[in-house]
């Protein structure tokens, strides 16, 4: 008796894809790191009467700009994710192109953001936390930027096919993660320093 699997597809999108699953685990790991840093932030907050202790809160300009960039970038990410399963290589390439531009813009604003935090990491525990939070997120942002650029490069070759298209879609999932954690970090850095 046999079970013939020759007719099964060799590419899967979405939750059936094993890389998708690995990406979920990866986001769980990174999400845990963010969660623990958020917890650290609030824990240190409880150990201080003054918040921010003897600093102006970080200037809101670039953080706000980036929040908007993250919001707008959802569109190309969504587009890639939606067109990839149809094998629409052109749409995927264009989507990746726009996404890369947003990621570049976000990275540029992020560089400026570091200059407007109104503190240095070595000032005190508050400043250290602010810097590490935003630094951690920048690490993810840059990783995502490079990944998108690499996929963009692949999308100009005939290799952007089959399972590569699935990878492009998974990249969009990861972009959502970067955007959402970005907003959360913004909320902590710009929000709670003003209202807490």
């Amino acid at each position: 008796m046999t079970l013939d699997v020759s007719g099964l597809p060799s590419v899967a999108f979405g939750h059936r894809n094993t890389t998708w699953l690995a990406n979920v685990f990866y986001m769980a790991i990174e999400g845990m790191m963010f969660a623990l840093m958020f917890a650290t932030y609030f824990y240190l907050r409880t150990r201080s009467t003054d918040w921010p202790p003897g600093h102006l809160p970080p200037a809101i300009r670039y953080g706000a700009l980036n929040a908007v960039v993250f919001l707008l970038s959802i569109a190309p990410a969504w587009w890639v994710r939606r067109r990839a399963p149809d094998g629409d290589r052109r749409a995927v390439r264009n989507g990746l192109l726009v996404l890369s531009l947003f990621a570049l813009a976000a990275t540029a604003f992020r560089v400026l953001e570091f200059t407007t935090l109104n503190c240095r990491w070595s000032d005190d525990a508050y400043s250290s936390t602010i810097w590490v939070l935003i630094g951690m997120h920048s690490g993810h942002l840059v990783t995502e930027l490079i990944e998108t650029l690499v996929l963009l490069a692949i999308s100009f070759t005939p290799k952007m096919e089959g399972t590569r298209l699935a990878d492009a879609a998974i990249n969009s999932d990861y972009w959502y993660f970067v955007a959402v954690t970005g907003w959360m970090v913004d909320f902590l850095i710009y929000g709670t320093t003003r209202f807490l």
Partner: peptide, 24 residues
């Protein structure tokens, strides 16, 4: 995170665990 913050405290002068500067 624990060992990473320790490393930052040690290498670049952050204060996560330094009670004198608001750490714990």
């Amino acid at each position: 995170v624990a060992s990473g913050l320790l490393l930052l405290d040690r290498l670049v002068g952050t204060h996560f665990f330094n009670p004198a500067e608001g750490g714990d």
